[in-house]
């Protein structure tokens, strides 16, 4: 087990390094003009442009930049943001934000899981009856209507009818988190309900469910103890990754409600060509994803006795 973990760890590190190197090189491919705002592009003479680029270390040959970059990472120096928050260390920029995203994300995940799975169970138990159809309508609606439209609806309803605060505010964290969490959960509930129903319905046709019935267990016992329990196995695989990726925040929801989280950070950084932030975030997200998958594999192993972790990597 230890050997396996170490092997996995090394593989992960290499994956992360590869990902960030590719991003690094891609960023360097962009014309350096993107580094400047429109105002600056007009005003600067070539020398001034060069001076700014050099200060940011963008003029050296790419190979040299890459080596220096690796050196910096080894020292855990992730550089300084130049465009998001000029002059502030990237770790600080990110650090102040991910706690917010994570908190909202985890709350939403918990709610979505619970509500989504319950809805999925209800849909399975009352398959093809009214509840099942209503659940399907909900799922289709949430997926068909563009996210921003749904959010606007939630905003108007929440703000006008329920009197909830319209924007996230750190002074009023509780009530002002309600609408963002609701929006985050909308689609997730539908997703979890859909998958729960699907896996549970799959289970219903299995022979051992027939055996359970013939044993004399009633529907409730069968559903919970056999169908749901078995259906959960393929689903839990994704839960650790989902949990970790809540750190990444949701771009749309956070923008919409002005949540000071990680969501818009990556796209903003790319737009403004803040290379240090982009690179660090890529590494961060890659690491999160990998850890999430790994935890998911371990969770699978715990939950399904047929599965053991093998040398080939991964649960099977």
């Amino acid at each position: 087990m230890i050997k396996y973990t170490i092997k996995r760890l090394l593989q992960s590190l290499i994956t992360i390094l590869l990902a960030v190197t590719i991003v690094f090189l891609l960023l360097r491919l962009l014309p350096t003009d993107y580094y400047f705002t429109e105002d600056q592009l007009m005003k600067f003479t070539t020398e001034q442009k060069n001076a700014a680029l050099e200060a940011a270390g963008l003029l050296d040959p790419v190979g040299e930049q890459l080596v220096r970059f690796y050196g910096q990472i080894l020292h855990l120096d992730f550089g300084i943001s130049r465009r998001i928050q000029s002059g502030i260390a990237v770790t600080q920029v990110i650090g102040s934000k991910f706690e917010v995203s994570m908190r909202l994300g985890l709350i939403s995940l918990a709610i979505s899981l619970v509500l989504g799975v319950i809805l999925g169970i209800l849909q399975t138990v009352f398959k093809d009856k009214l509840i099942d159809h209503l659940g399907t309508v909900y799922t289709v609606f949430v997926n068909a209507v563009p996210a921003l439209v749904s959010y606007s609806l939630v905003l108007v309803f929440g703000s006008k009818v329920l009197g909830l605060p319209a924007l996230y505010s750190t002074r009023n964290v509780g009530p002002s988190s309600i609408l963002p969490v609701a929006c985050l959960s909308l689609a997730s509930i539908a997703g979890y309900a859909l998958w729960t129903r699907r896996y549970m319905v799959d289970e219903l046709t299995r022979d051992y469910i027939k055996l359970a019935k013939v044993k004399g267990l009633n529907t409730r016992e069968i559903m919970i103890s056999h169908v749901l329990r078995n259906a959960m196995v393929p689903m839990v695989q994704y839960i650790p990754a989902s949990m970790l990726l809540t750190i990444g925040g949701s771009l749309l929801v956070e923008r919409f409600f002005s949540v000071p989280g990680m969501g818009p950070l990556l796209t903003d950084a790319i737009n403004r060509y803040d290379v240090n932030v982009v690179q660090t975030l890529v590494m961060f997200y890659a690491a999160l994803g990998i850890v999430g998958v790994f935890l998911g594999d371990i969770l699978m192993m715990l939950v399904d006795p047929r599965i053991t972790l093998t040398e080939k990597g991964g649960a099977r």
Partner: peptide, 24 residues
């Protein structure tokens, strides 16, 4: 039926490979 199945009348099914819940 809940009073009958498993208690008064029982059934053994055909395929032992799939009759049992693999996770229990």
């Amino acid at each position: 039926w809940l009073k009958i199945r498993g208690k008064k009348i029982s059934m053994v099914m055909q395929d032992p490979m799939t009759s049992l819940n693999p996770l229990k």
